[in-house]
Design a protein around this nucleic acid. Structure first.
Lengths: 118, 118
DNA sequence: CCCATTCATCGACGGATGTCAATGTATAGG
DNA sequence: CCTATACATTGACATCCGTCGATGAATGGG
């Protein structure tokens, strides 16, 4: 039931990789929580929509209609992505603007890379 | 309800990317199912264990003890990974040997990459 | 043959998850 | 002020998911 983000940051495990040394349980849990965040079709589309949106940021009202889901549901998914460290939220006026965390997806991608030189 | 692997293959969407053009629902569903497969700590460890194992393959009996789970549970997770296209299963004698699908993780990694040149 | 080993499948259980309607909160405009 | 807009939170619900014990299927050794 631990949905909280574990204390261990992915970047803490400096040389961690899925395909390198056998992964310990803590690293696996931290990593899995991030992959789980993008393991949902709606959240994947939200990431994509935010990235493709003008200014590389979008508010909830920009996203509700494209994904055809209720506003609370979209807010929920965005919260999950923020807690996973993939999106930032900045409130300006009545609007909440969401944007990609620079490098966050790239860091995840690096962990999936198979080391060519063993 | 639809847990079956969709007909659309990730590679079919030749230039698909999370951060490129806005993703359509089908592509998102296909992609998400793969990320969901690695969005579990146990499956992440299994991938890692298989990759790190001698000969880059491992049987169920090699994996049960490291992850400290029952044999049916391990078999279940391995099945999920096979259906996600991340592992192969080859039965030799009484044993089932699991190995990484070459390039599968790299393909996933590529989809997460932020295009530096917009 | 009989039995041990390896693994997959089934059925069941509890907890997690995605979704919505209803409600609460804050900001902006008249 | 009063109201409208944008968003978060809550509570509820159905479904999904991870886990296990029990069982079944296949292989190989005495």
């Amino acid at each position: 039931m631990v949905t909280e983000l574990p204390v261990v940051d992915v970047t803490d495990a400096c040389c961690a990789s899925v395909v390198g040394e056998a992964m310990d349980a803590d690293t696996a849990a931290t990593l899995a929580s991030k992959f789980k965040a993008i393991g949902d079709p709606t959240r994947l589309r939200l990431l994509s929509l935010v990235a493709a949106h003008e200014g590389a940021e979008a508010c909830v009202c920009d996203l509700t209609e494209p994904v055809a889901l209720s506003q609370p549901t979209v807010s929920h998914h965005l919260k999950v992505l923020v807690e996973a460290g993939l999106l930032t939220r900045s409130k300006r006026g009545t609007w909440s603007y969401y944007a990609l965390v620079p490098g966050a997806l790239d860091d995840l991608a690096d962990l999936l890379r198979t080391p060519l030189t063993v």
